[in-house]
Design a binder for these strands. Structure first.
Length: 279
DNA sequence: CTTTAAACCTGCTGGC
DNA sequence: TGCCAGCAGGTTTAAA
């Protein structure tokens, strides 16, 4: 159950475990992918890289595995040939001589010629990856001001993968809190300072989550959980309904936005300037 | 156009 | 223990 930072960390771990090594076996649960198994033996994994919340596993014979974990998929690394006992359904197994990588529960998996994988319907529509190192505030502000996005409510825009790929539901709450903006605000109604703050938060919060890992200890969401490291990422508002805002002490509220739960501080993120005149 | 609601994928937890 | 309802960090599709 991942967002961009969790997917990128998974890609890092998987690549470290198996990239460059030849496969001794490949296995897919999907009937449509069975015919790829034999051809993968002896091939090497060139790279494993994220695109938003999708993962691309590139092989050296010109094919790329596309996978999307949606809510429930998860990758595991195991000793070579090992299949740890679990209640989850194994969907993909790639074995090298000393390590195996296993994908469980995901249903959105397909093989593409590497040269055409970018035309995958999901990938083709994605905006820039919010965690891409080259992404800067100037580009984020430019997207906020573009006709496609400037009229959208932030609560919906921040989940739209066409705006910034890799954003997700916990990041949405955390970014809006960090920027001090209510989800009903719209880019076109923000003043320059607010727009700059939002761009800064959109860059900083996902990076903080990616680099430090970790979540609120009481929370159940523990995919790739770092633990209690002092610098681990902690939710400021997500999942903290009724608890005091870390900035002002007001009770954090939970609302519905775009049919998903969103947490905010009513005092730090006031809605009443939603209709404020431009500039 | 934007927004909302429902459906679907699957796994886990809490309650009876 | 067993079953079921409800919920979940996502996405797509249809409808409003």
């Amino acid at each position: 159950m991942p967002e961009g930072p969790e997917i990128r960390r998974a890609a890092d771990r998987l690549a470290e475990a198996v990239a460059g090594r030849p496969l001794v076996r490949a296995w897919f649960a999907f009937p449509a992918l069975k015919h790829h198994e034999a051809g993968l033996v002896g091939r090497r994994i060139e790279s494993i890289t994220p695109r938003g919340k999708a993962l691309l596993t590139r092989f050296d014979h010109g094919w790329t595995l596309y996978s999307h974990n949606q809510l429930y998929g998860t990758w595991k690394i195991a000793a070579a040939g090992e299949r740890p006992a679990t209640t989850r359904s194994l969907r993909v197994a790639l074995d090298t001589a000393d390590r195996s990588i296993l994908l469980y529960s995901a249903s959105d998996v397909s093989m593409w010629p590497s040269s055409t994988v970018d035309s995958h319907p999901f990938l083709a529509a994605l905006g820039p990856d919010v965690l891409e190192p080259g992404l800067d505030a100037r580009e984020v502000e430019s997207r906020l001001g573009s006709p496609r996005f400037r009229g959208r409510a932030l609560g919906s825009l921040l989940l739209d993968q066409r705006f910034l790929a890799g954003m997700g539901n916990y990041l949405r709450s955390e970014v809006l809190f960090d920027a001090g903006l209510h989800p009903a605000r719209r880019p076109r109604d923000l003043d320059d300072g607010e727009r700059g703050r939002l761009a800064g938060s959109l860059l900083a919060i996902p990076r903080l989550s990616y680099h430090t890992r970790g979540i609120a200890p009481a929370d159940r969401m523990r995919d790739d959980y770092l633990g209690d490291a002092a610098d681990a990422f902690r939710f400021q508002v997500f999942g903290r309904e009724g608890q005091p805002c870390p900035a002002c002490g007001s009770a954090i509220a939970r609302i519905d936005a775009a049919s998903r739960r969103l947490y905010l501080c009513p005092r730090c993120q006031p809605a009443d300037r939603a209709a404020a005149a431009p500039r």
